[in-house]
Amino acid sequence: MSIYSRDHLDKTGVGARLLQVHQRSLWTVVAGEKTMETSSISVIEQDGHGVPAQKITRAFERAHAEKRGVLIPYFMCGYPGIKASVDVILAAAEGGAEIIELGMPFSDPLADGATIQHAGHIALENGMSIQGCMEIAKQVSARCDATLLLMGYYNPVLSYGLERFCAAARANGVSGLIIPDLPVEEADPLQAAAYRHGLALIFLVPPTAPDERIAMAAQRTTAGPGGFIYCVSLSGVTGSRQELPAHLQSFIARIRAATQEHPLPLAVGFGLSTPEHIASVTSYAEGAVVGSALVKLIEQHQADDPAAAVKTYIQSLQKQ
């Protein structure tokens, strides 16, 4: 079966577009067979869903064609409750979110500020697990077309089994992974499993990263099935801030320059919360991530209708 058989886009154009984005990637398209292969990566391609990571690429391409950025909200699976988290995620998709990060809770979230720490703690108390996150991905992907990324710390993923994790992620409609405590030096085992299943492995790039490390992350991403660079706006942990960091735009320009040989969409995260933040960031980057602000919003609306609040908020973020 062709890997593009269930593509939403036309069947012949996808590979060509992918090549536009990943100009120097290892990926090659054998047009007649419509299969993708590389010298170092073999993708398990039997289920007819296409390469999951391409969904990310297509979301950025659509937004680019419409001259807008991609809004990427983050939700903690199992917060404020297991069913309630499915509702808020679906509400975000209804509100127009095309890519959604599904947070996997961890007992020791050392890159997170108080807000997401708290949400993770509640999620674990609610019995959330990796398997539970997979269930949520399954329910969400069955009911909306948003592109799903799983985001969480390495140990639960390792404990679940890297191969098993990637197979389950793919089977449940996930397109990519973000693991904040997995720098490129340690990424090989998960990267191999992720790429084998056509999943993106998204690297985070903070302001302290020297150019050569930024290039290394980009090179790895373009060598894979798709993805973007997650630009961490500031030196610090997650959590909403009043103002954007002063040097954000020049930092993004530095990433752009350092990734010239491996061009990728750039999405900015950490500290964003207002429509003004989103508008500003997406004037020079392709995507904007909002996390802690959403968790706070859900907490504030726990007693009434968090899903409605999330939908309205997501819509408001895209208005400017």
């Binding site: 405590d181 990263a209 490390r213 961490v232």
Partner: peptide
Amino acid sequence: ERGRFGDFGGKFVPENLMAV
């Protein structure tokens, strides 16, 4: 050179700490 002791050790930290 990777900071490993056999299979153990390494640097599993946020990228923001890699340079330091």
